[in-house]
Amino acid sequence: MKRNVTLIATAAMGLESIVANEVRNLGYEDVEVDNGRVTFDADVSAIPRLNLWLRTADRVKLQVGKFKALTFDELFEQTKALPWETYIPEDGEFPVVGKSVKSKLYSVPDCQSIVKKAIVERLKQKHGVASWLKESGDFFRVEIAIHKDTALLTIDTSGQGLHKRGYRTGQGEAPLKETLAAALIQLTNWTGDKPFVDPFCGSGTIAIEAALIGQNIAPGFNREFASESWGWIPQSAWDKAFEEAEDLANYDQPLNITGYDIDHRMIEIAQANALEAGLGELVQWKQMQVKDLRPKQENGYLVSNPPYGERIGERKEVETMYRDLGMIMRDNPTWSVYILTSHSDFETIYGQKASKKRKLFNGFIRTDYYQFFGKR
């Protein structure tokens, strides 16, 4: 029997439209885009598919209810009125987390406590439990988020954030999130038959995400999700989603992807991460300085998150690398170059004005994504 639910794919600031496109490409329509989230209605079978396929979303949440709440009494009564028993079984474990922004109910611990109490009362009543709930079964992470006095109640279906692909065996000091790396690639029009280079590859995230995209491998294929054990999502829905992912993967697509880094330790970590991702020798790794980069093919793509030079003493060194890269890529005009950095003078140092740039956040750092389109 088909059953519709309201789902929210959460997104980092600046990635909402990319997440919305991914949701639409999976066949879900009437998508509502808001700050930090993309909301839409779908059958419950969407939960496995979205968790498996979304490359740029942070989490997939189930919306249980949304309402105005100006007092704690209103919060309690309206939370209790929601059909929690539809989702949380008698023995379900359901911690409540919360946040509140620009709202009369600003005490997050009080909001969490009231929501928890309301759900307990509802579940005891509907499941016919006289004393207390054991909470020894499946895990359901409930969130109360209040913004401008509107309360949004959700259950997280993902478990660990979707950026946790399961392949990261090691990382550098400031690793790029896998979801942001995938977004950087999706903001290009690169396809798996074109050369792809990351000359500041670090632990290899951008190159690995490119390989997954190039062979159309579902990013969640090698991990688990909180909702896999939930009784109201048929096991057949999970089986079908994994079968679809296996069928759509194009393991025969040859790839020309290379990651370079000046630090041999990072190259070793990147190789280990690629092996853990099941990519074997699909991505080539090499220790090299950016000034030695010499693209051999035409019409390639360079996508990178180089050092920003934010630490004292690093700025001159970083600016030299930017300058070297600009000189090299001017000799390779058919290549498209995409650089994420917080350095405000990047275009001047690189020696060229970007065809396009987009504001993005790398964690809490405001950055620009500079896009230089190659001549075809």
Rank of each mutant, 00 (worst) to 15 (best):
Q352P: 08
I328K: 02
I339S: 07
R311W: 01
A354I: 03
E314S: 13
S344N: 09
E298I: 10
S336E: 07
L325A: 03
T320E: 08
K316P: 06
M327V: 10
Y301F: 14
S344E: 14
H343T: 02
Q297I: 11
N305G: 12
K296A: 15
G309T: 09
I349P: 01
E347P: 08
R311Y: 03
H343Y: 12
S344H: 12
M329N: 09
Y308E: 13
T341E: 04
N299P: 08
Q297W: 10
M327D: 10
V337Y: 00
K286N: 15
T348G: 05
S304G: 11
E347I: 09
S355F: 03
Y322R: 00
N332W: 02
D292N: 12
K291D: 13
L325W: 02
G300R: 06
K296M: 15
I312H: 14
E314M: 08
E347G: 05
D331I: 02
Q287A: 15
Y350R: 04
G313I: 11
Y350F: 15
Q297K: 13
P307R: 12
V337A: 00
L302S: 05
T341V: 01
V303P: 05
V318E: 01
Y322E: 00
I312G: 12
S342A: 11
P333G: 05
G300I: 02
Q287D: 15
K286H: 15
Y338L: 08
K291H: 11
V337H: 00
T348F: 08
K286Y: 07
R315E: 04
K286M: 13
G351V: 01
V290T: 09
D345I: 06
G309H: 06
N305D: 14
S336D: 03
T334A: 09
S344I: 11
V337Q: 00
M288A: 11
R323S: 15
E317H: 09
E317I: 10
Q352V: 10
M321A: 15
E317K: 10
M327Y: 04
L293F: 11
R330N: 10
M329T: 14
F346I: 09
G313A: 06
M321Y: 06
E314Q: 13
I339T: 10
P306R: 06
D292S: 08
W335Q: 05
A354P: 05
Y350N: 01
T334G: 04
Y301S: 03
Y301L: 07
Y322C: 02
G351W: 00
